[in-house]
Design a binder for these strands. Structure first.
Lengths: 194, 194, 194, 194
DNA sequence: AATGAATGAGTTTTCATTCAT
DNA sequence: CATGAATGAAAACTCATTCAT
């Protein structure tokens, strides 16, 4: 029934980002999002199943394209060290280029209910797979330690990047994420290398 | 006005942990917590300012004592490597020994409103300070790299441990956190060492 | 945001009068008023800011129109004695024609909280102005005593009419207000005349 | 069961006056009154049936003695004009001498529930009887008009004095009640005389 | 396809009163 | 006599969702 495409579909998602960024997750009512998108409340339900669907779709649209891009770009790099460097760079660039979106996906949507969390985690799984592939590539090419536990390493990489971005937002975006790419890459590579 | 101490104070906090663990944050009504604690709804307000106060106090009581313990134990270790190892061990032991509490503090309370989040973050600051001190000790003793950015390293350590525990819970506690202590310690130390 | 007009706006106000008259101010819950008005509880909040707003609007709608009528009718009379007579007549007629409304505005709403009281008093100010004008007219035309203190006389007129109506209601409407118009007019005029 | 006498009985009533004057009727909780009276909450119930009883007793203690005094003093005056003058004087003096009490009895207690209102009205009946006697005396002695309706005149006198005092309080006590005695007496006597 | 008025379920908090000590 | 900890009922208001137009 829900259209999931079209001009208004995107208008609603973009309105949701702006409203959540401005008022916070707990004050982002459907009626506010509708007003911001210049549509009627009921119209949202022509494009989305329900409010949860708006939020998951928001994450999907905004992060899904980033993940696809990352998949594609990393597949064209062979060196695991360079892959890792590029992964971090893409991660940070993606969030630095739209602070409202960063705030929404990184902070606000984490307060959502279990249903939304589940949808978000499904999308993130593809991202975790990318990290896994970089680590596996590093092990296969003998750059990373052969006994390295991929899941443990993956959680280190993701957990670190995630915490780094969260801190950056919570501290008011007052320093540059990009400045930390080199040091983080070094920490990871030295930690994981043979 | 709120008493913040006594037998019932603890009974209410423990009841809150059980109720949130069983029903989830969004279904943990005051009346349910009161029933579980075998007190009247109004009694909760003799011991706590409001519902937010119950949740922040829960975090404070349960994590605050862990943090104090960590502060004390780490201060008796001089080697930064051993401090790091011990920190991870304490972190994991603390959460493995009470899975309900782990679920509540690590997953459910993160869905709470900004007021509660703020209270929780204040408590966590003390924990981040402990991590900082370990890293500083490593730099000072020449074990960790002199140019290591403490904040970046701190976020790596905290972010990794946090993500590790979250994954463990989301995957149904089906492996042991303690088994990962050695590898994580190694990853951190190799990453940070001179 | 509140509409403050329309069919349901009036239905809610009329329902509020009936509910308060029947159950008393302290037992007139929003849900009871909504049921009586045959709308959902939430619908009331589409037309009114909050419960206080319902009560003040009730007074405004019901007494405001009476005051406007009085203003208009008295402006067409030149003799202060006749103005006074007519004012009392209008006052009593207005309350006799709807006993439920009289009970609500005269007795029940006086038990309301300070916020509502303030709203009611603002509306009543216009009525006190009408009384003032009658007295001033009497002084100007030499009918009333030139040294008469308008404020003192106004309080006599309003206080007397108010007490008269209150007694009538408290005694179960068992006599006619209209029968007292002549005597009250005489008391006031003799008291105030030159 | 309720003692209705003793040192604490009076302490509680005086505390109630202070608390209601300071916080308003709707914020005068039993626990606040108890704290102000330096007794335990439960102690109030050793001296009073319930909260309503505290309020009615307050009115009874404070206004009852005034009424007895008025009864006594007026019985010693024979002239109806002088009785009326003295009645108004006593009324105003009584309220001017304790502004907190005036605020409580004249404004705040009027917001109370029907039960308290009933108790207050019972006490006021004795006062209305005093007014009646003055008017009857005036009619009997031929000073007031033989056809004067006592009830109508009584409502004029009481309503006027009541409204005068209410205005005085609502306007912040910023003028003197006593200054109005002469004019009010004149208004009444001219209105009622033969 | 779009609207937006209407719905009604659901929860925190207060406070008069009790009663074991 | 006095205490004060404990009780638990009660009500305004929000907001996701529907559906007649």
């Amino acid at each position: 029934m829900a259209k999931r495409t079209g001009e208004k579909y995107e208008a609603i998602i973009d309105a949701a980002v702006r409203v959540i960024a401005e008022y916070g997750y707990h004050n982002a009512q459907i009626s506010k999002i509708a007003r911001e998108a210049k549509v009627a409340d009921g119209t949202i339900y022509l494009y989305f199943e329900n409010k949860d669907d708006v939020l998951v779709s928001l994450f999907d649209e905004k992060m899904g394209s980033f993940i696809s891009q990352a998949e594609k770009e990393l597949s064209q790099i062979t060196s695991p060290e360079e892959q890792l460097y590029h992964l971090i760079k893409l991660h940070f660039e993606n969030l630095e280029k739209d602070r409202k979106l960063a705030l929404v996906t990184q902070i606000e949507l984490r307060q959502s209910n279990p249903e939304v969390r589940k949808g978000i985690n499904n999308i993130l799984k593809r991202y975790l797979d990318i990290i896994d592939n970089v680590i596996l590539n590093g092990k296969k090419t003998g750059v990373f330690h052969e006994d390295l536990d991929v899941r443990i390493a993956r959680r280190m990489v993701f957990g670190t990047l995630d915490e780094t971005v969260t801190s950056w937002i919570m501290n008011g975006f007052k320093y540059s994420l990009l400045d930390q790419i080199n040091e983080l890459t070094r920490l990871f590579i030295h930690g994981m290398k043979k």
